[in-house]
Computed example of a mutant assay.
Amino acid sequence: MVSYRGYMSPEYASEGLYSTKSDVFSFGVLVLEIVSGKRNRGFNHPDHDLNLLGHAWTLFIEDRSSEFIDASMGNICNLSEVLRSINLGLLCVQRFPEDRPSMHSVVLMLGGEGALPQPKEPCFFTDKNMMEAYSSSSTQPTITVLEAR
């Protein structure tokens, strides 16, 4: 089950609705983190307040996805495969669960060579927006304080 808010699907974070598409969302976040070398949670960019997903989406729609790739990959990566991974990651983090592929489809897309569908805009939260979503939800997280005996 998804337990870390940087990887939670929007429907789980805001309404507590969990499905297999929630796992697909989390997988997409991981793919984007691996490609960029950065974490979604706590991501900062000097030009905007978007998280990593929003940054990936912005570069994708501007046809600048190559700027999203971690510089340490240098010339050791196959650019077309990495760009495909970004596209796939964005398919997995689409706003609505019904728009996300199944995990079975994700596996097939990872191994395939055909063109991938165009992703729709993901639901991006900044850390501040995520905290507001938590505080406005009807189910508040339980905090347990451990004390030494």
Rank of each mutant, 00 (worst) to 15 (best):
I34E: 00
S36W: 04
G37H: 07
R39S: 14
N44E: 14
H45S: 11
P46G: 05
D47Q: 11
D47G: 06
H48F: 05
L50S: 11
L52H: 07
L52R: 04
H55S: 10
A56W: 04
F60H: 15
F60I: 11
D63W: 01
S65I: 07
S66H: 12
S66W: 08
S66R: 13
S66V: 15
F68S: 06
I69P: 12
D70L: 06
A71W: 03
A71P: 03
M73K: 11
G74L: 08
I76T: 15
C77W: 02
N78R: 08
S80M: 05
R84D: 05
R84K: 15
S85F: 10
S85I: 02
S85E: 00
I86P: 09
I86N: 10
N87D: 07
N87W: 00
L88E: 04
L90P: 06
L91K: 08
V93K: 03
Q94W: 03
R95G: 06
F96D: 12
P97G: 04
P97Y: 01
D99Y: 02
R100E: 09
R100G: 04
R100D: 08
P101R: 00
M103Y: 07
H104S: 13
S105W: 00
S105Y: 00
S105N: 14
V106I: 13
L108N: 12
L108C: 06
G111T: 05
G112N: 02
G112A: 04
G114W: 01
G114S: 15
A115T: 14
P117R: 09
P117D: 09
Q118I: 14
